[in-house]
Design a protein around this nucleic acid. Structure first.
Lengths: 336, 336
DNA sequence: TGTTGTGTTGCATAGCTATGCAAAATAGTG
DNA sequence: CACTATTTTGCATAGCTATGCAACACAACA
């Protein structure tokens, strides 16, 4: 019964059954090819009967384009990444591309995963929360494979990037916290080597200093929940505890909120101001309601897709910055 | 400067440079092949110099195995899926496989995505929160492609599944709610057509009736946050409101908690019992602390991977059930 | 030295489809 | 109907690698 012979039909089988050549079969499945509707329907009928489907591997091999886009993601614990992956995958699908995905330990170099992807001849690479060795970056350039970093800038000159406006956001947050009357303001960094965290910190610090404040207290939350909770405790157990914290992303801001509220019985907004960055949906859940700077995910991703799929100038590194907005919520209103 | 000629070297180029045949190059990159260490190192040096990497598309075409595993996921809003994807992708990588991923509208038939994947000759399909038309299921069987459903059972006889023990979990939750003294117990369904939701509901209802209770009130939350919030409001606005709700997953239970606490000023546990299913990490965040039944994600996924990669018997549908545990938390302790 | 065995190597081909080119068929026109 | 223009078709090949087979080299051994 269960014969384990898998007999996947090929184009020649269809051709034989339909009484045409293999080329005709190929053309029947290629939109815009030169073929009469009569033979196309003959082919389609035969294909249907045999359960034929064109082998995309062979097609890719021949065309030199696999239609595969490699995506490397960081820590899935942060809701930003799954949401980004979802919109990315949908947009790529809509353009006829498939998504080859790797998840990576946060901020590690993704070299081995990427080598695997290159072996599959991906048409492009999209890297989120990852680094790329410069030797591999050069290989990508040599092979003509566009590489786009999302929300991270690489020192490798040949790679494009799409980021949200970290400077703008951090400046607005600083301004807002000062306006709201907070006095002792702290910053919670993400992963220290990431450009995202560094850019946000630099702009935040500069803005505070420009307004005559001191350099903020600083603590490191590593962009994950556990790290952020520890960092928050470190801040709150001090005698002179800060009265406001800007966390380098919303995911950490949520952890910070939980520590403040449930371990120190502080009411966010009133007793301590908490701000984040990203505007993930969770940031306006009633239990959090966190002031933040919005990263317009759709725009971010569509810019990324455009950069990746545009044939022209794929050798020039283009750095795109997408502006967002300050979203004020109750986590930073001392009067609530 | 920027010549747009992408000149990816092939095995013959390496062979020429190394002064060997193309076969030698192939063998140098195939572990266990018959080749002397001297020529292998000659080949490797030449490959290094040219930046050669074996073309996995050609290799897959020839071998008939692509090493690609197709994964279709539902709604990324539910943290369960990203976490599952992450562990899945890691386990598959560890076995030398790559992950081709599609995200799908919740519970829609994933046929078009899956057809695309079949075109790439995936070695297997893993489907989460999706349906598969029976015609496509048959095609997969004919092509010898194992299909495994995670947390969903398909009517198509040829497909295996790995699920957590929905009956066991729902029964334990029912028991626990009754033991805790709740009187008017409700159930919040997910997507009505999903076997996951139906199985949990059936077992929950049966258990309650077996304990002499009435059939629980019933509301539908569609497995997403918005739906769950609406469903919860529907429950709570009644005059005779329930004093406990079992939600078909944690993601909905979190939404229900937010509605209860922030819209109706009810304290979970004390004023209303709320239970979920999955034990996602968020379920023990202090703001939620939701009683639930644990799905051991690692076990679930490793069973899935095993089923998918085991060559033997891939034509027999095997249904694996992974047991979890009741996790009691404060969301169902009336005395807190 | 001749023989047998083991380990290496190259040749030729398969695996599946897309496409340039020439041949064939069809349509169009007077 | 004859002739040209256009569309459709098949042939042959390319794209890249893995592998069976035969040839080869080499060492071991008597």
């Amino acid at each position: 019964m269960n014969t384990s012979v898998k007999n996947v039909p090929a184009a020649t089988d269809v051709a034989r059954l339909a009484g045409v050549s293999q080329s005709a079969v190929s053309r029947a499945f290629t939109s815009g090819a030169s073929i009469s509707s009569k033979t196309r329907s003959k082919v389609m009928a035969a294909a249907e009967e045999l359960g034929y489907r064109p082998n995309q591997l062979a097609r890719s091999l021949l065309r030199g384009r696999s239609q595969l886009i490699g995506v490397v993601l960081g820590n899935m614990e942060n809701p930003f990444f799954p949401l980004a992956l979802e919109t990315l995958s949908k947009q790529l699908n809509a353009q006829g591309h498939k998504t080859l995905v790797f998840t990576n330990e946060a901020n590690q170099q993704a070299d081995t995963s990427i080598e695997d992807m290159l072996n599959y001849r991906v048409d492009a690479l999209i890297l989120m929360a990852t680094t790329l060795s410069s030797s591999l970056a050069e290989q990508c350039q040599a092979a003509g494979i566009p590489v786009v970093f999302v929300n991270r800038i690489s020192h490798a000159m040949c790679c494009s990037s799409v980021t949200s406006d970290n400077e703008h956001g951090a400046r607005l947050i600083a301004q807002h916290l000062v306006d709201a009357g907070y006095q002792r303001i702290a910053f919670m960094a993400g992963i220290e080597t990431s450009s995202t965290s560094r850019d946000r910190e630099a702009a935040f610090t500069d803005a505070l200093i420009a307004m005559g404040r001191e350099k903020p207290m600083r603590v490191v939350g590593h962009f994950n929940r556990t790290g952020a909770m520890q960092a928050m405790r470190q801040l709150l157990k001090q005698a002179q505890r800060p009265d406001a914290v800007f966390c380098a992303n919303d995911h950490m801001a949520m952890a910070a909120t939980d520590v403040a509220r449930y371990e120190y019985a502080l009411t966010p907004g009133k007793d301590i101001g908490i701000a984040g960055f990203d505007d993930i949906p969770h940031a306006h859940w009633p239990g959090y309601d966190i002031t933040t700077y919005s990263q317009p995910l759709d725009a971010l991703i569509s810019q990324t897709v455009e950069r990746v799929l545009s044939q022209s100038n794929q050798y020039d590194a283009i750095h795109t910055v997408v502006k967002g907005n300050l979203i004020m919520r109750s986590s930073t209103s001392p009067t609530n």
